[in-house]
Write a protein that binds this DNA or RNA. Sequence first.
DNA 1: ATGGCTATTGCAATAAATTCGCATCAACAT
DNA 2: ATGTTGATGCGAATTTATTGCAATAGCCAT
Lengths: 161, 161
Amino acid sequence: MTHHATKTLQELGYRLTPQRTLVWDVLRASDGHMSAEEVCAQVQSSFPHINISTVYRTLELLVELHLVRETQLGPTRRFFEVEEEVPHHHLVCERCGSVAHVHDEDLGSLHLTLAKGQGFAAKQLTIFGICDTCAAEGDRGTAPAGEVGPAADAAGDAAGA
Amino acid sequence: MTHHATKTLQELGYRLTPQRTLVWDVLRASDGHMSAEEVCAQVQSSFPHINISTVYRTLELLVELHLVRETQLGPTRRFFEVEEEVPHHHLVCERCGSVAHVHDEDLGSLHLTLAKGQGFAAKQLTIFGICDTCAAEGDRGTAPAGEVGPAADAAGDAAGA
DNA sequence: ATGGCTATTGCAATAAATTCGCATCAACAT
DNA sequence: ATGTTGATGCGAATTTATTGCAATAGCCAT
């Protein structure tokens, strides 16, 4: 009961279970975004009995109630975070995977541009690119673009994940 | 052999197999983004023997060679599209799932803002929101926000997928 | 055109993430 | 305290993606 969330749940007729409370608490305590598995692991430290499927169901519910939002940080995994008052967006580094935030207000006229140009109401942006740290490291890391090719001569597997 | 792609492959020492050619052709013929499964199904119509794992491996290769790029349209599935000369970004409607394009140049000063503010070099944006069509339809569709709740009174399952 | 070297492929097994059915359990109103 | 019924745990089923390996087939040299 760290928040009005519990009240919200009850007011809407949902039962207030320890599982739900804990999932919420864990997400609130977290600084950033968590996968369902991470949430589950965290919750289990104080409530060992919780099951991953319950976590999924709870997350789904919280998203439905706009207490939590699902971020879009890439394929093959879902991430969740507490829905905050000041909207923000995500900068995902394609090289190191780090995730930074940008405040919505720092987007300039983007909303207006999209609204005018395409009639699109932007809610959440995910911006993929290269963070300053990785850029500083030069073009090492995840196989830049230069000399790729089959294991013809001496080019190892320069194209990992 | 619809493009320089085949030449690129051979020049780099990769073998030119029908599977690779067909995956490339299918992607080129497609208007938008395709999942690996969709590509596979398409290719199979003219080359029934191709296997999904080959499709994955081919897509990975084409991405590596910057002939194809992986788009980031949401979790739980990967999508691919031919890498085009003029960069564009994606507007994904959270309600109907439609995907529209925005030209990079229409983003205004966003690149500059991100570069200055966070030292971040943006490459690909995915913008989630509501498209004009859905907005016009009012707040029906994917359970807006108003009256959600357990199956208490007469509220059906207004919150499907 | 032929043959050999080895990159590629197909297939099946595997892995990871998420969902579903159902019997049991426990919130909450009475 | 008790009943009603929504919520949970568990295992099985799905979906999506990856990997090992033997068989196949490009491509170069002949």
